[in-house]
Amino acid sequence: MTLNLIDIKSEYAKDKDLKQGDVELFMTWVNKQPHLPKINELQAILFLQSCYYSNEAAKTALDTYFTVKALCPEMFGNRNPLTGPMKETIHVSVMTPLPKETPDGSTIFFVKLTDTTPDKYIFVDQCRYFDMISMLHLYQKGTSKGHLIVFDMKGISFPHLAKLGPITMKKLLFYLQDALPVRLKGLHFVNIVPFMDKVLALMRPFMKKELMDVLFLHTTVDELFKYVPQDCLPQEYGGSVEAVPILHEKIKGDLRNNTALFEWEETQKVDESKRPGKPKNIGDIFGVEGTFKKLEID
């Protein structure tokens, strides 16, 4: 199986703090764990760099990453963009890393609905979509000094809120904060909706202080420019990056052209029967799902 991955040499060249000896030591530990899948050098680099080169933090993050992916197949399985739920999901929104980094070297993940029909919005499928484009970018472009998520809420209506759910939201935010190998520097909501308080009421119970500290709400796009240079954004926002429809077509093409990578990803899961000590289950990670109450919408 041929995977289109970034050249490892470029990762060492761009980051003087990344030491090959540390990467080899980390890989050796991971590949000796009976319950974990074998990893390659790029994966080791991604987790070490995202954890600021802390070997112990990287071990925890990587174990969490593969554990969550195994225990949440409804969110991380069925990753083929040509079939199943992803075939339609990629048309509902554009989720894409923007080609221009911020001056401090951070990557911008841009998110916006392109089909605002509430019935077509399936939250768990959108979570899968976000993970797929995030991991594809990391595998093909490598590490970044930071990552920003910019979510333009224009077109989101109250019926979309009813499509969200506390269980899926908890899983997404846990994964984003504890497993995804990125340095998250900002979560920006733009063109916020009148019912943003209800969205936040759903999110806040599952957010750590570190994420709350980098959560920003912007009534207008102009407010975003205080944090994200306008020039780094698509043309519709006055930036120099290609227009949103063009970006959308490109990311859909990238997903379709990398089905082999997503098939390989699905083989990389923990084997709880081989975990030293007590095997983990979904309750160990997320608590008892039955204790969640349905979101109240006034």
Rank of each mutant, 00 (worst) to 15 (best):
residue 197 D to E: 14
residue 160 H to T: 00
residue 177 Q to S: 08
residue 203 M to Q: 07
residue 199 V to C: 12
residue 159 P to T: 09
residue 166 P to H: 08
residue 203 M to Y: 09
residue 206 F to N: 00
residue 176 L to N: 06
residue 161 L to D: 09
residue 176 L to M: 13
residue 195 F to E: 07
residue 219 T to H: 14
residue 173 L to Q: 02
residue 157 S to G: 14
residue 195 F to W: 02
residue 210 E to A: 15
residue 219 T to D: 12
residue 160 H to K: 06
residue 191 N to Q: 09
residue 153 M to I: 11
residue 218 H to P: 05
residue 180 L to V: 12
residue 154 K to Y: 04
residue 191 N to F: 03
residue 153 M to R: 10
residue 154 K to N: 14
residue 178 D to P: 00
residue 176 L to D: 04
residue 204 R to M: 14
residue 162 A to Y: 10
residue 194 P to Y: 08
residue 209 K to T: 03
residue 177 Q to H: 08
residue 200 L to E: 04
residue 203 M to K: 03
residue 200 L to Y: 02
residue 204 R to N: 14
residue 180 L to M: 15
residue 178 D to E: 15
residue 200 L to A: 11
residue 167 I to M: 08
residue 173 L to N: 09
residue 166 P to Y: 01
residue 193 V to N: 01
residue 154 K to E: 12
residue 159 P to F: 08
residue 196 M to K: 12
residue 164 L to W: 10
residue 182 V to M: 02
residue 200 L to V: 11
residue 224 L to K: 02
residue 170 K to F: 07
residue 171 K to N: 04
residue 226 K to R: 07
residue 172 L to E: 07
residue 200 L to D: 02
residue 188 H to R: 06
residue 190 V to T: 04
residue 177 Q to C: 09
residue 181 P to F: 08
residue 198 K to G: 00
residue 171 K to F: 03
residue 159 P to K: 04
residue 226 K to P: 04
residue 154 K to V: 09
residue 205 P to V: 13
residue 161 L to C: 13
residue 216 F to N: 13
residue 156 I to A: 08
residue 178 D to S: 12
residue 216 F to S: 01
residue 185 K to G: 08
residue 154 K to R: 15
residue 168 T to S: 15
residue 173 L to I: 12
